[in-house]
Amino acid sequence: MAVEFTLNGEWRDFAGDPRTPLLDVLRDGCRMTGTKSVCRAGFCGACTVMVGGEPVPSCQRPIGMLEGAEIVTIEGIAPPEELNPVQRAFLEHDVVQCGMCFPGMVITLTDFLRRNAAPTRSGIKEALSGNMCRCTGYERIIDAVMSIRETETPAAEAVSR
């Protein structure tokens, strides 16, 4: 009675306890540790992954509910050795500090930009209300996202995998 799903485009299955949060399946089962386990309660967003084309906190998803789901994690958000525009903007603006929140930030904001071609600062902040950062004080993250709007059209390609 294993649960089957696709992970970054690849078929996987999981035969353990179906109540296990997707987060733990990714980190412990698949040993894909890019997705971070921080609050385990749906507040911090560090565990955000794409499920069925939507960014959701993976700590809140029992794997048993994900039969057939398409899951994309930070490891699959851009082709190997490539960065998507959000990741690139984070590098260019020296945004990163400890880094623990950033996998989740990248997932949430990549999706956000796909849906909002011309975001405002307050719109980005609202979109980040479930992605917390203890280090950076946020504003530079917003600066980086705003710069994408100015320089290029958002990356639809990166999330469509």
């Binding site: 353990g16 109540r19 089962g29 029992p62 048993g64 039969e67």
Partner: peptide, 18 residues
């Protein structure tokens, strides 16, 4: 294929999807 967690004893799965 991943296996993980301890074997289940009862016949009822801990998560069912009717």
């Amino acid at each position: 294929m991943m296996t993980w967690g301890t074997a289940r004893k009862s016949g009822i799965s801990p998560l069912t999807s009717p």
